[in-house]
Each structure stands twice: as C-alpha cells, then as structure tokens.
Nucleic acid binder design. Structure first.
Lengths: 202, 202
DNA sequence: TCGATAAATCGAACGCTGTACAATAAATAA
DNA sequence: TTATTTATTGTACAGCGTTCGATTTATCGA
C-alpha cells in the first residue's frame, strides 16, 4: 500500500501518541513496543518509525505529554487552596500523580536518552514547565530577599520529593518498613523552607 | 556437548556474575544481554539460564553485588574520619560511587522486578545492609532520646540524597542549571539533622 | 488535463533479544 | 557394569527495533 489519506500528518502524530500513551500505561516502559502501537492503530511499523524517527523519539514525546499532564494536574489541585497549604498540595500532588499513573510516571525516569541522540525540545520544555509551576509556589512562600537562589532551592526540593516518591514506587520504602512516604517528604520540604524563614503557617 | 567439568557449580556462578557485572558496567541495563555474558565465558545461553533461572535473576544478583560493593566502599571512606565529618563522607560517597560506577548504579534503579517474581533474598539483604551502615552513622549524631524513629529518618535522608543523585546522573539538574548537586544534597541532610538537634559541628 | 515530482506507506529482511525444550554427554550411584 | 541423575548444548520460537526498496498516492507545474 502506498500513500493513504485516512489521517493528515498531525492527526496521525496524535493518533500514535495517544495509542503510545495507552500502551505505555498498560505495559510499562520495559514491555513498551512500537510494533504494538502500530498494530493497534492499523498502520505498519515503518510508518510509526517514519513519524518519530525511532522508538526513543516516540517515548520522549510520550514522556513530554506526561509532563504536560502532570503540570496541569498540579495546577488543578492548587485551585481553591490559599497561602500555606499550597506547598503541601504540591507534595501530595507529586505522589498522587505518580501513584495514579505508575507506568507513565516511571517511564520518564526509566528511559535514558541514548548517547549521540539528544533530548527532544518538547520534552525539555515540558520538564522545565513543571519545574516552573513549583518554583512559582516556592518563591511565593520565601522571604523576598531570598529570591536569588530560589531556583536552585526549588530544584533541590523537587529532588527531595522525587527521591521519596521513587523509593515508594520502587519498593525500597516497603523493604525498609517505611509506611508514610509522602508525609516524610513533606516534613523534609517544610524543614528546608522554615530554615529559610519561609512564611509557613502564617 | 553434555556435562563438562571446567568449573564447579559455585565457580560457574561466580564466573557468570563477574562477567555479568562487566557487561553491565560497559553496556548499561538497557543493552545488557545474557547472551553476551554467555559468549564471553564460552558457555551457551542455556547454561546461564539454568544457573540463574532467567535474566531478571541474573540482574538481581549483579545488583546485589553492587550494593555489597557500595557498602564496602562507604566503610572504607569512613575510615580516618571522626565525629562530625562522617555524615558528609557518606553523602559524598553516595555521589562518588554512583558517578564512578554509573551503569552499575543505574541498573539498580532501572531494573523492575517483574510481577509474579519476587526480589532475591541476597538483593534484599544487601540493600538492607547498605541502609544499616548509614543508619548507624545517623544514630551516632542524633541525641540519644531521638533514637526511636531513627530508622525512618535514615530512610528519609537516603531518599533525599538519592533524589539529588538521580537528578544529577539523569540530566535533570543539568537541564535546570544546577551545578553542585552533592553540596545541595548535603545541605538538605544537615538541615534535617540540625532540626533534630544532632551534634553536628560539636 | 497531463506529466513529473515528492511524500507516505508497506512489507520483508536483518540481527538482536529472552525463553523453552529435546537431545546428548558426563558424572555419580547402585 | 549398569542405571540414574545432572549439566550442557543447540535449536527453535516469538518478539523486538531498524533499514530499505517497492509501491501507491497526493501535490504541483505546465
């Protein structure tokens, strides 16, 4: 078969991405397969490869979508909460998203961009965007004079929460008998913010 | 060919494990291959499978070895440092080990035990052992009355350092312009310990 | 409207993977 | 010496990502 007109280019991209997301959510990164995606949408493997270059390209776009979804999920959760509670909403939201979308979340961290290939623009952009949401909230609770290295502090806080979340879903905490990882992470974040004189509980 | 007597059972296990470690260090988890291990030691694939059950079994034993090596590496580094510096040695040691043995370290966290299979005894044991080394040092700097939930605190501190380390090696920090991840992690750990009244700098 | 060009899609081939299993050879037990 | 257990092999299978020539269709120019 040659050129078809079932879907335009963008339409096809979206179709592959949607189905790719579906397969990733079901099977996880280890069992993810571009061939399976092709089968489900009724196109051949070659077409999928042609659109995304290679399977790593497809995975990166799926991960970019997950980041975008994650940002929106957090923004939604922030709505209705004012002042002091917003940081806690972010921490809990981080955990809840990861738990709810286990495989999609894990795929972000299980996928390594191969040497010689670089990270897709959209993936980098969405990753930075998610950080931006958190940075905004962190800056809001810090005293104005400390705004200088707020970006670095934000990165550190995200790393802290991420570490707890990764240990929870990876089973490390279960092995060590830790029962409430999210509360533990929240405690670490609050300690750090209070050490900086953040207006928590004000 | 049938039964040979080149190596005893334990000898063969060790040979596979050594070579497996070698392949993992060179290629990383994504490109790790039991067939490649078999080729290097001059046995067939079937034999490797027979000894370790399946490739996940082999990976878990390799990871268990990495944990053991890591514990010893940390103990070595602790020697010669007294009192206050020991916590910092642990934090730096965590980062240094991960950087020096990038692929071996990453394999620990990139491998997911498949559903229906459970984590090997030795892997769980070595993982707990590493935690034990750190828990001992944390308990040593905490005020005696706080020893109750020292285990949970230790897990939280490890998660914090792990998060920073994972972001460093995964490229997240580079993307966000963070330059000194180890110092950042150390700062978080010290904050937490000081909030508990730990005898740092005493 | 017709022809040339460009783009998209397929399907087969390639080399790789982990797994399963029957055949075989050697070590061990009786 | 014979029978039995055990280790090892090689092959077969289904799946994977990647590559690429062939084919069909859309698009553009004249």
């Amino acid at each position: 078969m040659g050129r078809r007109s079932d879907h335009g280019r963008e339409e096809l991209e979206a179709l592959i991405l949607d189905t790719g997301r579906e397969v990733m959510a079901e099977s996880g990164y280890a069992r993810f397969s571009a061939r399976e995606v092709a089968k489900r949408i009724g196109y051949s493997v070659g077409t999928v490869m042609h659109v995304f270059g290679n399977v790593d390209g497809l995975v990166m776009e799926i991960n970019a979508r997950t980041f975008r979804h994650w940002s929106e999920w957090l923004e939604d959760r922030l709505e209705g909460t004012e002042g002091r509670g917003r940081i806690l909403v972010l921490v809990r939201g981080y955990f809840d998203f990861a738990e709810t979308h286990r495989n999609l979340w894990a795929a972000i961290y299980e996928h390594r961009v191969p040497e010689g290939m670089d990270m897709s623009e959209t993936l980098a952009a969405q990753r930075v965007r998610l950080t931006g949401v958190i940075a905004r909230e962190v800056a809001a609770v810090l005293p104005p004079n400390d705004a200088g290295d707020a970006a670095e502090l934000t990165s550190s806080l995200i790393a802290t929460v991420h570490g707890h979340c990764a240990f929870m879903l990876g089973g490390t905490f279960a092995l060590l008998g830790v029962e409430h990882p999210a509360e533990l992470a929240a405690a670490r974040v609050m300690e750090t913010l209070q050490a900086r004189g953040a207006l928590i509980g004000a």
